[in-house]
Simulated assay, not measured.
Amino acid sequence: MALEVRNKKPLPKAETQKFENYALNIDKMLRNKLEAAQRAQVVSYKLSEGNIVFSTDAVLFELIDIALSQYFNKLSEQNCNVKVTDTFDNTVVNRTKRVYRVIKADGVRYTLNVYVTTSRFLLNGKNCMEFLEDDMPNINAIVDFLCVSNNIDLKVFNDLLVEKLTEFLSKQSTNALSAACAAITINNCREDSDKCPGCNRACKTNSVLCTKGSHWIHYHCQKLKKDEIEQLASSPDESFCCRFCKTSDTSAPSKTLNECE
């Protein structure tokens, strides 16, 4: 979720990119953004195990994220070593984290971690205070300029974000509840004597009807994933063929030419 603002120069790209082996949980990220949008519009600092964690509201975070890119891009042009690393989930689309490793000409060094999904920053290194005292005022000046030039009112934008996220997440929860109710209805509309071909136990709950074999099979015996179960629960009238029936079809010997005649 990025705030669109007008910039005279394009933002720099990371020198290094990393990719996680998981897909970002969009629903969880949006709930984190909702929580961030409801924070007070100030930067709060917290000392944690020698590191400094600071949090902002959702809109201010997006502005600081842009300001950091502009500021460190300028520093890198002034004999300052700034290494930027972006981390994405396995879709190669969602950026989850950005890391700035800074070494200035006078020896000052620190690392700033930008956590996109939670609207938080983690500052560590032996010169953290230099960042807060020397760099942060300049970054705040860029943020102020972005607000003025783009006519951004933090409270108005955060309130709008809270409204839209609450509405969207409410619809998501309603859809999930409907799917769960449909699954309960399906599971209760069968005879206790229905046996699962995977474990030979009664399919009383958590199972799906194989329309080809006219029998029920447990979700775990079919090795169904969560999204597959939700899809089946939301479409109870669609045909479904279990893995056992599919295997019997593919393993059936094919007829020879003479047998077909």
Rank of each mutant, 00 (worst) to 15 (best):
I103A: 07
N113A: 01
A40I: 11
L154C: 01
K83Q: 12
F157W: 02
Q41L: 14
K83D: 15
F145C: 03
V59Q: 02
F54V: 05
A141V: 08
N150W: 14
R98F: 07
S69L: 12
T56S: 09
V42P: 03
I103P: 09
A58Q: 12
V156D: 01
K155N: 09
Y100C: 03
D144H: 10
V43R: 11
Y110G: 02
K104E: 08
V108H: 12
N51S: 10
K97F: 05
V108K: 11
A105D: 04
R95F: 02
D57V: 07
V92G: 09
R98S: 02
K164S: 06
F121L: 04
T91N: 08
L146F: 04
K83Y: 15
A37G: 00
N79W: 15
F131V: 02
D135R: 05
E163C: 04
T166L: 07
I142V: 08
F61W: 01
F61K: 00
D57P: 02
M136F: 13
G50V: 00
L63I: 07
L122Q: 00
Q70H: 14
F121C: 01
N51I: 02
E62G: 03
V84A: 07
V143S: 01
Q41M: 04
K155V: 12
K74I: 11
N151K: 14
D144T: 14
L122M: 07
T111M: 10
F72Q: 07
F157R: 14
L146W: 04
N113H: 15
L112P: 00
F145D: 10
L63D: 01
A37N: 05
F121Q: 00
L123E: 02
D106K: 06
L68D: 00
N51D: 05
I103R: 15
N151E: 14
V99A: 10
Y100S: 03
D89M: 12
V114F: 12
I152S: 00
N127Q: 09
T118W: 10
A40T: 11
I66D: 05
C80W: 01
V114P: 00
L68A: 02
L123S: 02
S44G: 15
L132D: 01
I103K: 15
C80V: 08
R39Q: 03
D135H: 10
D57N: 09
V43D: 03
S48A: 13
Y71E: 06
Y71D: 01
R109N: 08
V99S: 11
N81H: 15
V93D: 11
N140W: 12
C80I: 06
C128V: 12
E130T: 13
L112T: 03
N158V: 13
N73M: 08
T117N: 13
N51A: 04
D106R: 11
A37I: 04
S119Q: 08
G125L: 00
T87L: 12
E163H: 13
K104Y: 05
T85V: 13
E77I: 12
N138G: 00
I52L: 14
I139Y: 02
A37F: 03
L161H: 04
V108Q: 13
Q38H: 03
D57G: 05
A105F: 15
V143F: 01
D144R: 14
N138H: 12
N158R: 07
N81W: 14
N150K: 01
T96I: 09
